[in-house]
Nucleic acid binder design. Structure first.
Lengths: 167, 167
DNA sequence: GAATATAGTTATAGTTGTTAACTAGATGAT
DNA sequence: ATCATCTAGTTAACAACTATAACTATATTC
């Protein structure tokens, strides 16, 4: 195999003395996709730690919040709102139902579909989780001011839901 | 199970007439973690489409860029820079090596470690991919101005690498 | 040279995301 | 009506990613 001129004919080599430990200075640092991924992982790490004692995963949290906001929402609509595939919803709701946080109610008009509701327990937990989530966001973004945090949020919404951010 | 007063004693129910299709108006819209995830998925979708013909996945792209920037970097250091676990590096480099894009060179001073280099082919491809990636970022963020894009990038770097963004 | 540490690797399992196909019920046409 | 078609939810199979433990070969330290 032809190798780069920078190392041509080298068979054994010294390790890079610089011991790089970050992507600083590389093109990667200017790629939005990469930065989004790294930032998302960092923020989720905090989130998961905060939710650990309640055994709530990110997708479960967002489901709870959407069900709370739209009681009786169908699974199909929940999938649309969260932009995840219908099969994912099934195990998500199964889990919430098994834990007594949510329940399916068969819709009498269209017996194929189910309205999803929170139980009392689910509502109480969701209130608690929303506060934990807000605090987790702040903890994970200590290096940002409150203004920067709002700026960031608004830029992100423009990316994933450009329609709803026009006004 | 006790269910919320909003739906108490309802056994069969009408589907929500509003047919919600977004998280607009919910607390979720104000959660950084959620917004980051949604934005990241949207941007990666574009990225994957752009890279499809080259069969390059996000982690492969970032590996190529780091190796290009630090020729001879060891696998351990590559793992540190990308913040992924060492076992992930193995299959990543195996794949790049099988495709003739990169190669391992045993380090003579420490025969446990390998310096990773790009082949000529790998260098040429990486140049091409960097341009594709830049264009993909722009395509995925059509709703942002160039200034907003730079703002966003700088905010994200502050989150995932707060040290390197001080100046 | 014996104990300890490190680079890379292998194996494994848990989690997630994706797709295809199935069932039950709804809708629409003739 | 009845037949074909569509939709909601589900199941199952599978690919991708992440995390962990354990193994090997070398290096380092005492």
């Amino acid at each position: 195999m032809a190798i780069s001129k920078k190392s041509a004919s080298i068979q054994q080599v010294e390790p890079d003395e610089k011991e790089p430990t970050s992507v600083a200075g590389l093109v990667l640092e200017n790629r939005l996709g990469y930065a989004l991924r790294r930032a998302q992982l960092a923020v989720f790490k905090h989130f998961n730690e905060a939710m650990q004692e309640h055994e709530i995963r990110p997708a479960q949290f967002s489901s709870l919040v959407v069900i709370e906001g739209y009681p009786g929402i169908t699974q199909t609509n929940l999938a649309k709102v969260l932009d995840i595939d219908p099969p994912r919803i099934v195990s998500l709701i199964n889990n919430l139902e098994e834990r007594g946080l949510a329940l399916r109610v068969r819709c009498k008009r269209d017996k194929r579909s189910h309205g999803i509701f929170l139980s009392k327990k689910g509502e109480a937990l969701t209130e608690q989780l929303k506060e934990l989530a807000e605090q987790s966001d702040i903890d994970a973004t200590q290096s940002l001011s409150e203004i920067e945090r709002r700026q960031l949020l608004s830029l992100l919404v423009k990316i994933y839901a450009p329609e709803t951010s026009e006004e």
